[in-house]
Amino acid sequence: MILEIRTYRLKPGTTDGFVRAMREEAVPLLEKAGIRVVDCGASLASEDGHEEAYLLRAFASLGEHQAQEEEFYGSDAWLRGPREAIVSRIESYHSVVIEVTEEAVQALRRG
């Protein structure tokens, strides 16, 4: 399994709206597109006073990761859907992609 850990540095005062848009709008679209969302939410701690959030996604392979991302982020559903509500709140983001076991992915799932 491939696990993508994406962190977002958010613009001040936007955490609640970002998390709401992510959970209520973006995650359902990601899952409909076949992208496995493991978890997302606000960081429990801020770095140097910045508001931050995260998104964890799992993929079967690096190739699947690349193909599914390209397809999703180029889709009308994303571009005409929650894209602006998400992107407008992001100051910057960073992703790390690592290899993990299915058990590790399951352990990270919330609920």
Rank of each mutant, 00 (worst) to 15 (best):
E4R: 12
R6Y: 02
T7E: 13
Y8L: 02
R9Y: 02
R9Q: 11
K11W: 02
K11L: 13
G13M: 06
T14R: 12
T15A: 15
D16G: 08
D16T: 14
D16E: 15
D16F: 05
D16R: 12
G17N: 12
V19C: 07
V19G: 04
A21P: 08
E24R: 06
E25T: 02
A26Q: 15
A26H: 00
A26P: 00
L30D: 00
E31N: 11
K32P: 01
K32D: 13
K32H: 09
A33E: 13
R36H: 06
R36D: 14
V37D: 11
D39Q: 10
C40L: 03
L44T: 15
L44N: 14
A45I: 12
A45C: 06
A45E: 15
S46Y: 03
E47P: 01
D48C: 04
D48T: 08
G49F: 05
H50F: 05
H50C: 08
E51V: 05
E51M: 04
E52P: 00
A53V: 09
Y54R: 05
Y54L: 07
L55D: 01
L56D: 11
R57A: 10
A58S: 15
F59G: 12
S61L: 08
L62R: 12
L62S: 07
G63T: 08
E64R: 08
E64A: 13
E64D: 15
H65F: 13
Q66S: 09
A67Y: 02
A67V: 07
Q68E: 12
E69F: 05
E70C: 03
E71R: 14
G74Y: 03
D76P: 04
A77V: 08
A77G: 06
A77D: 15
W78M: 05
W78N: 07
L79I: 11
R80D: 11
P82V: 01
P82H: 07
P82C: 06
A85E: 11
A85K: 15
S88T: 08
E91L: 11
S92D: 13
S92Q: 09
Y93V: 02
H94R: 12
S95R: 14
V96A: 13
E99Y: 02
T101M: 05
E103V: 01
E103C: 02
E103I: 00
A104Q: 15
A104I: 10
A104H: 12
V105A: 11
A107Y: 05
L108A: 15
R110L: 09
